[in-house]
């Protein structure tokens, strides 16, 4: 066959760049690929099996969107750039990290994402909790504390605390390092995956953890509100209080969620209860809210059913792996 013939046979491709929390990857995608084809390729490359928490995110006209799985990549409203960039991120959060995150890679990606959200102050965190979290992050990165090796200044390059916390105290970089190191030294013997899991176990109790917030308006009196969607349900907050919702609808108590143009309607299971209607800023945002509701609701229901064979196998594998690691760690 001639070179020309070979060339003709090759399918047309386009390039994408996928950015994870700690790596960048480039892929050649076939023009006909659906979102799922690209997503599966990324998951296979990462060795990730707990795929249901994740998605490929992009930004279009200032709004965050997630690549749809069942639609062709090129038929979606993605940015016109070469290569097209996607962020591989957790889209849904577990209700209990210690029970649901099985693979080490899944835990690690969650750890990195939540740590960034805390440092970027997207999740509010008190100063004392940030110090404790920082000590686990240091244990995960540096292993056991060794004063001969971890000399003063060893944390100078690490971003460990949110800027807001640093500003709250008259403390030098070295004083912070000393404080964090004192707690870091307490974690001796904890392996990297355990330290990251301890970090997540603390972070999951923070009020803003795992909540996607959207500004909304209620039709009645046009008060500005925030809608929060998370693993447990839908919450309504005052615009200046993202910590405690005024009202919550657990997934099991919701009959139906629907939208038309900018209006979204939540119908509670209890037919006597008031139907909650509100407006979001754009149709696109409504679609995103609904997407997050459907995904979170599905996971909520899945958690309350018997584990699939795949999950049972993964749980057994995770248990074995943990036991093996613990033994190896103790032996060392």
């Amino acid at each position: 066959m001639s070179i020309r013939g070979l060339k003709k046979k090759q399918p047309k491709t386009f390039k994408v760049k996928v950015i994870t929390m700690d790596a960048e990857m480039e892929f050649s995608c076939e023009m006909k690929w659906k979102g799922k084809d690209l997503f599966d390729l990324v998951c296979r490359t990462l060795g990730l099996r707990e795929t249901w928490f994740f998605g490929l995110q992009y930004t279009i006209k200032g709004v965050c969107a997630w690549l749809k799985m069942e639609k062709k990549v090129l038929e979606q409203e993605i940015p016109k750039e070469d290569p097209t960039q996607f962020r591989f991120l957790a889209k849904f959060y577990p209700e209990k990290v210690e029970e649901e995150l099985l693979q080490e890679i899944t835990q690690h990606l969650f750890f990195l994402q939540v740590k960034k959200q805390i440092l970027d102050e997207e999740i509010h965190c008190s100063p004392e909790v940030t110090v404790l979290l920082a000590s686990y992050a240091v244990q995960a990165k540096y292993g056991d504390y060794d004063p001969n090796f971890h000399k003063p200044g060893f944390l100078i390059q690490d971003e460990l605390l949110p800027k807001r916390v640093l500003k709250q105290y008259q403390m030098t970089v070295h004083m912070w390092e000393e404080k964090i190191t004192a707690w870091y030294a307490e974690h001796r013997g904890i392996a990297r995956d355990e330290a990251e899991m301890n970090y997540l176990k603390i972070a999951q109790d923070l009020a803003m953890y795992g909540v996607n917030y959207f500004p909304i308006e209620q039709n009645k009196n046009h008060r500005d509100l925030l809608l929060g969607v998370d693993a447990k349900g839908i919450h309504v907050y005052s615009i200046n209080n993202r910590f405690s919702p005024n009202r919550s609808f657990e997934w099991s108590a919701i009959r139906n969620i629907s939208y038309s143009e900018k209006e979204l309607t939540i119908k509670p299971l209890d037919k006597k209860a008031e139907v909650f209607k509100f407006f979001s800023s754009q149709l696109k945002v409504n679609k995103l809210i609904l997407q997050l509701c459907i995904g979170n609701h599905d996971l909520f229901m899945k958690r309350r059913r018997v584990d699939s064979i795949e999950i049972q196998q993964m749980k057994a594998q995770a248990r074995e792996e943990k036991a093996r690691k613990k033994m190896e760690h103790q032996r060392l």
């Binding site: 008190s126 004392e128 909790v129 404790l132 105290y169 008259q170 004192a182 707690w183 307490e186």
Partner: peptide
């Protein structure tokens, strides 16, 4: 000596207390 890591809440209390003397007036 590093503080003893007893329980989560005790740890938080200890950190809070140790930070207190350094709090800026506006945030204390």
């Amino acid at each position: 000596n590093p503080p003893k890591f007893v329980t989560y809440h005790k740890a938080l209390q200890e950190i809070r207390n140790s930070l207190l003397p350094f709090a800026n007036e506006a945030s204390s």
